[in-house]
């Protein structure tokens, strides 16, 4: 029996989202997702088709629901994100229900993954070795990550670098990649075969379109990788590509300040960051040309 989401028809998926909820494996997390008053089945089907279903009976790491309040379904309908009974965000227009669901799931992960050192970082892997791209929003990490996974790298995550403190390996968490603004057309041009969902205009982060992760990355979501390189990317318009070594203390500072839970983990966080920085080669990458940036990252393998 196909235990993947693409084993369901649109109708079955829609019904599960509206009733008992869809039990979904998202990397190392099991989530139950429900919707009410909103039709997200077709989009979820196309972007999540390669994901496995979780056990119907749970347990679940989190329960989420995106709902349109009945009173607001007829004039300026809204989407509200619910997490384990709470409502952590302001409502958004109903047309932004899917991006809201995606941000909400990330928010749940950020609140539930404290057993890992959780870096705000994209991560990709090849031949068992991984590159982390810790960066603040707007520095081009998702775009670079999207490019690399269309050139033979495995997606571990575009958002969370989950470092397991017990063995210092990276735990994969492949999720749809939210491309923003100019990056949408850049990736369409760079990887015409990549599947991108619809563009959601004028979100708080500008225009957003989600790229479906490669099926192989999802299938290998339980296969950890060894962190080898820390690359701190920055997209700068018209800049030549520069990949320069970064000294250890600076890399330490950058990793620690890009960790969601460095302070929560206390001394254990300090120890994990230290081991990570000592075991990786660290670089600063400035780029504007995506092909050149991919070549520079491929060059690390040599």
């Amino acid at each position: 029996m196909n235990n993947r989401l693409d084993g369901l028809t649109d109708g079955q998926l829609s019904q599960r989202l509206r009733t008992d909820g869809l039990p979904l494996k998202i990397g190392c997390f099991d989530a139950r997702i429900r919707t009410s008053g909103l039709e997200l089945a077709t989009l979820a089907h196309s972007l999540y088709r390669d994901y496995s279903l979780a056990d119907d009976d749970g347990p679940f790491d989190f329960h989420v629901r995106v709902a349109s309040p009945l009173a607001r379904r007829f004039t300026r309908p809204q989407a509200v994100f619910h997490w384990d009974g709470g409502q952590p965000f302001e409502p958004l227009p109903a047309g932004l229900a899917f991006p809201l669901l995606e941000w909400g799931i990330n928010w749940c992960i950020a609140n539930r993954a404290h057993r890992y050192l959780m870096l705000h970082s994209a991560c990709v892997e090849k031949n068992g070795d991984a590159v982390l791209f810790p960066a603040w929003p707007g520095h081009g990490k998702t775009t670079l990550c999207a490019a690399l996974i269309n050139r033979g790298w495995r997606l571990l995550s575009d958002e969370f670098g989950l470092v397991r403190p017990e063995d210092d390996l990276l735990q994969p968490l492949p999720r749809p990649l939210p491309l923003k603004n100019e990056s949408i057309e850049v990736i369409r041009g760079f990887a015409p075969d990549a599947y991108l969902g619809p563009v959601f205009p004028k979100t708080r982060k500008g225009d957003v379109a989600h790229m479906r992760p490669p099926a192989d990355s999802i299938a290998r979501a339980e296969e950890p990788a060894v962190p080898r390189w820390l690359v701190f990317p920055r997209w700068v318009a018209d800049s030549p590509t520069k990949l320069e070594p970064m000294p250890g203390p600076e890399a330490f500072f950058m990793v620690a300040t890009n960790a969601f839970n460095y302070e929560v983990r206390g001394e254990a966080g300090f120890r994990t960051v230290t081991r990570l920085v000592r075991s990786c080669s660290a670089y600063r990458l400035v780029y504007s040309n995506l092909e050149e940036a991919v070549d520079a990252i491929n060059g690390l393998l040599n």
């Binding site: 250890g248 203390p249 230290t274």
Partner: peptide
């Protein structure tokens, strides 16, 4: 204190 030293800089 937990110290880490890189060349002449310390965390």
């Amino acid at each position: 204190f937990c110290w880490e030293e890189w060349d002449d800089r310390y965390v």
